[in-house]
């Protein structure tokens, strides 16, 4: 397994030497002659949230799709250390194994909730489907868990039998998040998870995610335009421009003392984050 950052990491105390959950190494994606993202490398450990920010078209969704195994990179590797402790190059896995990971150990929250939900089946079934993929069989348990998660994302329990087409955009997004978190994944990828949500619901979701991160060691890669969300949720931050990572580091350091001209522009163009 190649670990690109290993040479750069300082000699740290023994407790910081446990192996990373996810390692990206030289991840590059071209769409023909158009660049999606280039040479992205980082490591992520359990209990860490990595934020990704950058202007529209800078390659954030492309990168997230490569990391989550939905889009194969033109070059580079993505290595995941599974529940069984083995580190695997996710693109060397058979398609079926990769799909299983996506439905069980990972959660993938898509930028457009319609892409991440089954629009034709009920809200309850959208959540239950993930539980069944994880091996749940008892109908009452599945329905009970679906009900609990709808509450956690503040969707009224009496909407459980409604199809997501009858939901508002914000409700669809919350349902998508519930569907992805219900199986207690080890790693979630989220593309603009709080876009279009009102402030109060957004706060509830941030609290929910922080709880899962702090207590169960959930790791997350989160793309967002919202620097206030990033500050509250992400431990580390990567700033992308034109397909490349131009700056990365501790979230508050990148936001409070940005070094790269693009990051300074990004931070100075919002009022207060």
């Amino acid at each position: 397994m190649r670990t690109p950052e290993a040479a750069r990491v300082d000699p740290s105390p023994a407790t910081e030497t446990d192996p990373p959950l996810l390692t990206a190494d030289g991840v590059t994606r071209w769409y023909g002659h158009r660049l999606g993202c280039r040479d992205v490398a980082f490591m992520l450990w359990p209990g860490e949230v990595l934020g990704i920010v950058g202007e529209s078209g800078s390659g954030k969704t492309t990168l997230l799709d490569c990391l989550s195994g939905r889009l194969s990179p033109t070059a580079g590797h993505v290595v995941y250390r599974g529940e069984d402790g083995d580190a695997v190059d996710i693109f060397a896995l058979p398609e079926s194994r990769r799909r299983l990971l996506q439905r069980t150990e990972w959660g993938i929250v898509r930028q457009n909730p319609r892409d991440g939900l089954r629009m034709g089946v009920s809200a309850g079934a959208n959540i239950g489907e993930r539980l069944m993929a994880a091996g749940w069989r008892h109908y009452g348990d599945i329905r009970g868990s679906a009900d609990e998660w709808l509450q956690r994302v503040e969707i009224d329990g009496d909407r459980i039998d409604d199809r997501p087409v009858t939901f508002s955009g914000g409700m669809q997004q919350r349902l998508q998040i519930a569907r992805n978190l219900v199986t207690r994944p080890r790693l979630v990828f989220m593309d603009e998870p709080t876009g279009g949500l009102d402030v109060s619901v957004q706060a509830r979701l941030l609290d929910l995610l922080r709880g899962l991160v702090a207590e169960f060691g959930l790791a997350a890669v989160i793309v967002t335009h919202d620097l206030a969300v990033v500050r509250l949720l992400a431990h580390r931050l990567m700033v992308m421009q034109g397909g490349a990572v131009v700056e990365s580091g501790l979230t508050d350091q990148v936001l409070d003392d940005p070094q790269h001209p693009y990051t300074q522009l990004l931070v100075s163009s919002v009022l207060q984050a």
Binding site: V9, D10, S12, P13, E16, W45, G249, L250
Partner: peptide
């Protein structure tokens, strides 16, 4: 050394 520590070390 905080000036050169990795983000992961800084968090710890």
């Amino acid at each position: 050394d905080i000036a050169s520590a990795s983000p992961r070390t800084m968090l710890a």
